[in-house]
C-alpha cells in the first residue's frame, strides 16, 4: 500500500499541505474494530450513564427520576454490605497476592534444580479459566468430601464449612483468588528482578550489606514500578470481582447470608434478577468513579514513592 507523503507532492501542486484522506490510510483496517467499539462499548457506556438517572426495566421505556437511584443507594443496607465485602477483598487480597507473588519470585529467582517446574506449577492457575477454577474449588471446599478438610483432618483440625459458613465464605473465596493471582504476579516480579543490574548487589556486598539490606535498599526500590503496576491492576480486578463468586453461589447469589454479595454481584442481581437497570447503572457508575479516584490518587502518590531507573531526581 502506498505510504502517504503529504508534504512533498501537496506543496508541488499548490494544494493544501495536508489532506484528510482516511480511506487511503489505516482507517479501513481499523473500521471493523471501530464500529464494534463504538456500538458495543461507547454507546452502551453513555446509555448506562443516562439510565442511572432513570427507572428502567428493559421492557418499558426508561423514566427520568433524577438522582433518586443514587439517593436510594445510600439507604440500601445491601449496598453497604456489598461495599464492605468488596473492600475486604481489595484490602486483604491485593497485598496478600503481591507479597506472596514477590516471595515466590525471590525464592525462584536463581536457577535451582527444578525451578522451571516450580515456576510453571505456580503459574498454572492463571491459565485455567475462572469458571473451571471456581468449580474445582467448590469441591476442594466441600465440608465432607473436600481436600481441604481432609488435609486439616490429618492434623486433627475440625472440618470447616468453608463456603457454607457466613464467616468463612469470604476468606475462602479470597484464598481461591490469591491462588489464581500469585502466579501472574510472580512472573511479573521475576521479569522485574531480572532488570536489576548485578553490579548494584556487588557494590553493596563490598560495602558489607547483608541480604536483608540488599532487599531493603536495592531490590524493593528498584521493583517499585512493577509493584505499582501490580497494585493498580489487581486493585481494579478485585473491585470488579465477579466470576468465581457468581459460580460458587449460583443457587442463591451472595449466600450464605450475603457474605459473598460483592459489588458486581449486587449490580448483576439488581439488573437481571430484579430488573432494576437504572439502579444497577447507578451502582456501576459509582464503581467507576471510585476506581478512578483510587487510581488517580495512587498515581499522584507514586511520584513520591516510586523510583524509575534512569530518572533524575532534584
Amino acid at each position: 500500500m502506498p505510504v502517504q507523503q503529504p508534504i512533498s507532492h501537496a506543496s508541488e501542486a499548490g494544494r493544501p499541505r495536508w489532506r484528510w484522506r482516511p480511506w487511503r490510510g489505516p482507517l479501513p483496517f481499523l473500521l471493523p474494530w471501530l464500529i464494534g467499539f463504538i456500538a458495543l462499548t461507547i454507546i452502551p457506556l453513555f446509555l448506562s450513564l443516562y439510565w442511572s438517572f432513570t427507572n428502567y426495566d428493559m421492557l418499558q421505556p426508561p423514566q427520568w427520576v433524577g438522582a433518586s437511584n443514587y439517593v436510594q443507594l445510600v439507604h440500601d443496607p445491601l449496598f453497604r454490605t456489598s461495599v464492605i465485602n468488596t473492600s475486604f477483598m481489595v484490602v486483604i487480597g491485593v497485598p496478600a497476592g503481591i507479597v506472596l507473588g514477590l516471595g515466590c519470585a525471590l525464592l525462584l529467582r536463581r536457577p535451582i534444580r527444578g525451578s522451571a517446574l516450580y515456576r510453571g506449577a505456580i503459574f498454572v492457575p492463571a491459565v485455567v479459566p475462572s469458571v473451571a477454577v471456581a468449580v474445582i474449588w467448590i469441591w476442594i471446599f466441600n465440608p465432607d468430601y473436600g481436600l481441604l478438610n481432609a488435609a486439616l483432618g490429618v492434623v486433627h483440625i475440625k472440618p470447616q464449612g468453608w463456603l457454607a459458613s457466613p464467616s468463612l465464605a469470604k476468606p475462602s473465596l479470597l484464598m481461591l483468588l490469591v491462588w489464581e493471582a500469585v502466579g501472574q504476579i510472580m512472573v511479573l516480579m521475576l521479569a522485574g528482578l531480572k532488570e536489576i543490574p548485578g553490579e548494584l548487589y556487588e557494590a553493596a556486598s563490598l560495602d558489607g550489606a547483608k541480604p536483608l539490606q540488599h532487599f531493603r535498599y536495592i531490590t524493593f526500590p528498584l521493583l517499585g514500578p512493577v509493584l505499582f503496576y501490580s497494585l493498580i491492576v489487581w486493585m481494579i480486578f478485585y473491585l470488579q470481582f465477579f466470576t468465581e463468586a457468581f459460580v460458587a453461589t449460583a443457587q442463591d447469589l451472595g449466600e450464605p447470608v450475603n457474605s459473598t454479595l460483592f459489588y458486581s454481584i449486587y449490580i448483576y442481581q439488581n439488573a437481571f434478577q430484579f430488573l432494576k437497570m437504572g439502579y444497577a447503572s447507578a451502582m456501576a457508575w459509582i464503581l467507576f468513579a471510585v476506581t478512578m479516584i483510587i487510581t488517580v490518587t495512587l498515581f499522584r502518590l507514586q511520584r513520591r514513592f516510586i523510583f524509575y531507573r534512569g530518572e533524575q531526581r532534584a
Binding site: 466441600n142 465440608p143 465432607d144 473436600g146 472440618p159 464449612g161 463456603l163 457454607a164 459458613s165 450464605p256
Partner: peptide
C-alpha cells in the same frame, strides 16, 4: 447451624 449448613453443602 454450622453443622446443618455443612450437611447441606456437602
Amino acid at each position: 447451624a454450622s453443622n446443618m449448613a455443612n450437611f447441606e453443602s456437602s
